[in-house]
Write a protein that binds this DNA or RNA. Structure first.
Lengths: 234, 234
DNA sequence: TGTATTTTTCTTGTCGACAAAAAGTCGGCA
DNA sequence: TGCCGACTTTTTGTCGACAAGAAAAATACA
């Protein structure tokens, strides 16, 4: 009689994906910053689940590289690898190009409306000067494009790369939230048109330029010299 | 006193990776054919482990797409998606090209010897007319090249694609084991030379041709008409 | 005899508890 | 006072058992 309320808290099997998605979001949005320790017991209390399903979610996150498990010791949120940034930019640019190309050649009717929905959300974020929203909706827009390209291998890799990008940009957001790359909206529009016209090479070059823009922006965030006392006489 | 022998069977934490690697191999080598049911209890008995570490290994395999879990029902070895083969070929070709290009521009001294080691193994397999060995060593060769290119994103995707390719080719091996693509050895040699000379565009075109070869070979295996009575008069 | 419904069985999902490994703590000793 | 070693604590890895869900079997009914 007394244990009836606990039963319906989670549908059997739903708990682990809830934990997975929640933690995944918190990691990407830096609510859990890199290096944060992940305590299984704590999560067990938080989600009102035993450690077993928690552990399952953690294994999934580890497979994606979002967390790092030090065997028998601790598991922490993976650090952002700044030395590996060139690799990241290379892969990101390639995926931008390939997915946009494929979208231009393979898309169906419905794909365009899905892309347009994401583009609208992106416009709203830009209008509101919501940098965090822009980062998130830009990701969704390009994933919609990738899905129109109909290649699951690219979609998967691209998703991972864009999420990694969100994590990186989050680090720099607060100090630069007035630098709003408004031109992205127009670039997205051009890309949509090229896709509709099935102009593969135009789509490619637009994606390439777009990727360069974004890489340049991330680079500028990262290398920005914010030392206030650089000119101080010594 | 009596339970001393069980303790040293596995070092703490080693069991799950053993299970993971063993199953992974058996799936790739079609020892576990697509659609095979994966019974946790059975595996628990087989590896002399509780179901918990088994489950952990299965979650990892599922994240890689090698097994499919039907919730609350069963978990089976993932089917080979023949309808998705064009996507597969597209991604495979792109990764052949990109990794070889990067190897040409980014490789260090040590990378070449690693590549040569794999190439030797490949030559041996070809000399022995060992098709299965050829498939495996060809994979190792190209992964060595990819590693020389120094981009972990590409290495990871390429590894998955090549392993998926091994699975596909295994399906056709037995009926075509006298068709030995000997020219691959020479093509590998050319690629190595282009990499050493840091000739990126030559490396690219060689990789592209090599990929076309392999895609064509897989296609020919798959579409080969093996009907014995095709000419039978009716 | 065929179909619908209940019962059984089998497999997965979850739990609480225990064991091992590592880090932290404390005390002893030079 | 500083360093080394044993003890304690904390956290992960593993286990056996139980519960829920779905398929299979058995039963009832038309």
């Amino acid at each position: 009689m007394e244990e009836t309320e606990r039963q319906q808290l989670h549908r059997r099997g739903s708990g682990v994906s809830t934990v997975y998605e929640t933690l995944r979001n918190e990691i990407i949005e830096l609510k859990l910053p890199p290096g944060s320790p992940i305590d299984e017991q704590h999560l067990s209390d938080r989600f009102a689940l035993s450690r077993t399903p928690i552990r399952e979610a953690l294994v999934r996150l580890a497979a994606e590289g979002l967390i790092t498990t030090l065997t028998n010791r601790a598991t922490i949120v993976s650090n952002i690898d700044f030395l590996g940034l060139p690799e990241f930019f290379d892969a990101l640019t390639l995926m931008y190009r390939v997915t946009t190309r494929l979208a231009a050649s393979n898309h169906a009717e419905g794909d365009i409306v899905a892309i347009r929905v994401q583009q609208k959300a992106f416009e709203v974020a830009v209008a509101n000067r919501d940098v965090l929203g822009m980062i998130a909706t830009n990701r969704d827009f390009h994933i919609a494009v990738a899905q129109a390209g109909r290649n699951r291998y690219y979609v998967e890799l691209f998703t991972r790369l864009l999420d990694e990008g969100r994590r990186i940009l989050r680090l720099y957001y607060s100090s630069f939230n007035d630098v709003l790359p408004r031109q992205y909206v127009g670039e997205h529009e051009e890309m949509i048109q090229a896709i509709i016209n099935r102009d593969v090479s135009l789509a490619d070059s637009l994606a390439s330029a777009h990727a360069d823009q974004i890489v340049r922006q991330i680079r500028s965030y990262i290398t920005a010299d914010s030392r206030q006392n650089a000119g101080l006489a010594l």
